[in-house]
Amino acid sequence: MVIRQKTIWENFLSPVVRFFIDEEKLQRYADSIDWKKESDRLWRNDVIIPDYYSSRNFHGIEGGYLNFGAAVSYDPITQYVLPPNETVVRQALIDAVKVKPRRILDLGCGTGSTTLMLKQAFPQAEVIGLDLSPYMLVRAADKARTANLDIIWRHGNAEKTSYQDTCFDLVTASLLFHETPTVVSQTILRESFRLLVAGGQVLILDGNQNTLRSLDWLNNVFEEPYIRDYAAGNLDANMGAAGFEAVQTQDVWWINQVTSGIKPIPVTNTATQKQVRQYTPTSIDNNDLEDLGSPVFGIKA
């Protein structure tokens, strides 16, 4: 019989993190919610849970995210694995927004940490958080109520959201791509392209691929099932393959990165053509995007 070896998380990281966590407080919170009732309310029968998601452990959490324990423990764990500070890292995505969004879709929103920040940054926008785990959405909804933020939470798959074409100005994903196989992340990028209006922006916050490639021991520490495939990939190239232009990646405190892409505006006349040609990785100035006449900015081309 093969004896399972304890992981790095179990041997070293979990005891350290647990030292800083008030487990009794977390247990009281867990006991205060009827997780079955609340998750059943959000669960959509038309959503098929993919095997890559339901059969793996994430963040050292046994059984993945399809249980209330994952929803309760996610935030306490995440705050210690995003140096120098979780809020600072997530704020990098907010700071990279160059459009004026009316509708925002946050894919793989989890417990809604970035989703809440998006609503705070763009209070007039309709903000939707979408995730495969209704348990994570229950936690997200509770956080939104506490913060008095009006956010729509939807159970769904980022690969196939069921939303209509061109109905969002901004699509985001935080810490999602390293938790999905490469073929899935490419499908999510194509879906993001379909959902965005012309001139709309996609933003992906995740681990720094250059850092993860050069320091492979970090992949052992994080113990994510798909992180090596993610590290070996090139998000810029994948965005380009999905149709995005003006693709740019910026480092976030060495261990993370934010990648931005723009859905190009179709060329309809000579004047527009001259503007669209600005959408190249070598000449784009993200601070001047309002001149492009996109519906995102409330300007009719």
Score class of each variant (00 low, 15 high):
residue 94 I to N: 00
residue 1 M to T: 02
residue 91 Q to M: 15
residue 95 D to G: 04
residue 89 V to L: 07
residue 99 V to W: 01
residue 14 S to V: 10
residue 10 E to Y: 03
residue 58 F to S: 14
residue 102 R to I: 03
residue 54 S to L: 10
residue 43 W to M: 11
residue 78 T to V: 06
residue 30 A to D: 12
residue 117 M to P: 09
residue 33 I to L: 04
residue 22 D to K: 08
residue 45 N to P: 05
residue 39 S to W: 00
residue 63 G to V: 11
residue 46 D to R: 04
residue 33 I to W: 01
residue 51 D to C: 07
residue 89 V to I: 15
residue 30 A to N: 13
residue 32 S to M: 01
residue 115 T to P: 00
residue 32 S to P: 00
residue 94 I to K: 02
residue 81 V to K: 03
residue 86 E to W: 00
residue 55 S to P: 02
residue 78 T to D: 13
residue 54 S to P: 05
residue 86 E to Q: 08
residue 110 G to C: 00
residue 103 R to K: 15
residue 86 E to I: 05
residue 111 T to S: 15
residue 54 S to I: 09
residue 94 I to H: 03
residue 43 W to E: 07
residue 25 K to D: 12
residue 46 D to A: 07
residue 4 R to H: 12
residue 68 F to H: 12
residue 67 N to R: 09
residue 29 Y to I: 09
residue 82 L to Q: 12
residue 70 A to T: 03
residue 76 P to L: 10
residue 75 D to L: 06
residue 17 V to Q: 14
residue 7 T to I: 06
residue 116 L to I: 02
residue 5 Q to H: 09
residue 25 K to I: 07
residue 61 I to R: 03
residue 30 A to W: 06
residue 102 R to S: 15
residue 100 K to L: 06
residue 11 N to L: 13
residue 116 L to T: 00
residue 29 Y to G: 05
residue 15 P to R: 14
residue 67 N to V: 05
residue 23 E to S: 11
residue 28 R to T: 05
residue 9 W to M: 05
residue 37 K to Y: 10
residue 32 S to Y: 00
residue 113 S to W: 13
residue 8 I to K: 11
residue 103 R to C: 05
residue 30 A to L: 11
residue 38 E to R: 15
residue 103 R to F: 03
residue 119 K to P: 07
residue 107 L to E: 04
residue 83 P to Y: 08
residue 2 V to S: 09
residue 115 T to H: 00
residue 66 L to S: 08
residue 117 M to E: 07
residue 69 G to Y: 06
residue 106 D to I: 14
residue 38 E to K: 14
residue 91 Q to P: 04
residue 91 Q to N: 13
residue 94 I to S: 01
residue 62 E to N: 06
residue 58 F to T: 14
residue 61 I to E: 04
residue 112 G to D: 00
residue 10 E to I: 05
residue 16 V to I: 12
residue 118 L to H: 02
residue 80 Y to R: 10
residue 87 T to H: 09
residue 89 V to S: 02
residue 104 I to G: 01
residue 6 K to M: 13
residue 35 W to P: 02
residue 52 Y to V: 04
residue 77 I to R: 08
residue 111 T to Q: 02
residue 56 R to H: 14
residue 28 R to S: 12
residue 119 K to V: 09
residue 75 D to Y: 08
residue 40 D to Q: 10
residue 111 T to M: 01
residue 24 E to P: 01
residue 101 P to I: 05
residue 42 L to P: 01
residue 60 G to W: 04
residue 97 V to F: 08
residue 82 L to P: 01
residue 105 L to D: 01
residue 13 L to M: 12
residue 117 M to I: 07
residue 51 D to L: 09
residue 7 T to V: 12
residue 70 A to E: 02
residue 45 N to Y: 04
residue 114 T to D: 02
residue 102 R to C: 05
residue 92 A to D: 07
residue 9 W to F: 15
residue 110 G to E: 00
residue 62 E to L: 09
residue 50 P to W: 11
residue 54 S to T: 14
residue 87 T to A: 10
residue 95 D to A: 14
residue 10 E to H: 06
residue 67 N to E: 06
residue 31 D to K: 11
residue 83 P to M: 13
